[in-house]
């Protein structure tokens, strides 16, 4: 029994029975610390899928960029991938009806650059490195994963355990898939509250207190922004930055060609565009060659806005985007605040 067997079994089933045309998932790369995304079309290849705890790309953006339009596509998704698909569907970038979200539980990922020798698997109560069980070393996890409170992808059609054959159907389509794979839907055996507690603890630690000195905070972020070499990595990798024609492209009024660091407006614009839906997937920070902690900024702002607009990114496809909607009560309220 390998970790992720349930997912492999489900992917095998959906491909064999023709429920989907292709499945996007991670398969091993050049060594045990590398995984690469791959579209799988042959059921026999389902066995290659890995559940190792690396997340070098956001599968949601790969799906939006390279997924064949009009085809049924399965996606082996961690919470951040599944939430990304839901946010992109709200923005008409992917068709949710064409995508089968096969969720896999995730208790954190490790940046391959920081990983120890041997394949790494993270569990809710420990980790396994190169086949040896160890206590969980939180410092090994990516910073965004430590702050993540969504270990179980309950927004996907199915959520599968990494270890064992636990699988839960969250939608009618999920039930259909489980029935086809001869699996019984059962709730997760893992208590997610410990992970939510870990998320809250790290958020407390990472996010500067808004009551403390503003100037210090401003100086810090301006220093960070001034490290920027304008490689556009954060924009290109972000699952929510989907515009083909971007306001931040050179010589489009806002950002002039050939100047680094870019005007601070570059970062402030991206911050404003992403803030309402940031998934805390950590890609912008992982890809940044200058190590600007962008995810921390976006995630903190998203958290602040979440309480104002009562909106959680990527959870419910029926929740309207907060900056593109308003309520009936708001039209009757006279003030400049909501309600």
């Amino acid at each position: 029994m390998r970790y992720g067997d349930t997912v492999r079994k489900i992917v095998h089933t959906v491909l064999e029975k023709g429920m989907v045309d292709e499945v996007l998932a991670f398969v091993p790369g050049i060594d045990e610390r590398d995984v690469v995304p791959a579209f799988i079309t042959d059921a026999a290849d389902a066995v290659k899928i890995t559940a190792a705890s690396y997340q070098p790309y956001s599968l949601a953006s790969i799906l939006a960029d390279y997924g064949d339009k009009g085809k049924k596509i399965g996606l082996v998704a961690r919470s951040c991938d599944a939430r990304g698909v839901i946010e992109l569907a709200k923005r008409n970038q992917v068709n949710r009806d064409d995508i089968y979200l096969i969720g896999i539980e995730c208790y954190g990922t490790v940046n391959p650059a920081n990983a120890k020798e041997g394949e790494v698997y993270i569990f809710h109560d420990g980790m396994e490195v190169g086949g040896k069980k160890e206590a969980l070393d939180e410092s090994l996890l990516s910073a965004n994963c430590r702050r993540c409170g969504y270990p179980i992808p309950s927004m996907a059609d199915i959520s599968c355990a990494i270890d064992g054959d636990g699988a839960t159907a969250n939608t009618p389509r999920g039930e259909e898939i489980l029935a086809a794979a001869n699996l019984k839907s059962q709730g997760s055996t893992v208590d997610a509250s410990a992970i939510k507690e870990r998320a809250a603890r790290w958020q407390d630690k990472d996010f500067p207190d808004l009551e403390t000195d503003r100037q210090e905070r401003l100086d810090y972020w301006l220093r960070q922004f001034d490290k920027c070499i304008k490689c556009y990595g954060c924009r290109n990798v972000c699952p929510l930055c989907y515009c083909k024609d971007c306001a931040l492209d050179a010589d489009r009024v806002w950002v002039e060609r050939g100047r680094t660091p870019p005007p601070r407006l570059f970062h402030l614009t991206r911050l404003m565009h992403i803030a309402d839906s940031c998934l805390n997937c950590g890609q912008c920070e992982a890809v940044c060659p200058m190590e600007i902690p962008l995810t921390r900024l976006y995630h903190q702002l998203h958290n602040e806005l979440r309480s104002i607009f009562n909106y959680e990114a990527g959870i419910n496809i029926d929740d309207a985007l907060p900056l593109g909607t308003f309520t009936e009560e708001e039209t009757k309220a006279g003030g400049v605040e909501l309600g």
Binding site: W221, L271, F326
Partner: peptide
């Protein structure tokens, strides 16, 4: 209605960055 929500979000962004949100006012 959209302006109201945008300005609220923008003011929060300024606060998180360390700029006093009172510098922007919607009336």
């Amino acid at each position: 209605m959209y302006t109201r929500r945008r300005v609220i979000a923008l003011k929060k962004m300024l606060e998180v960055l360390g700029i006093n949100p009172d510098r922007v006012r919607l009336e």
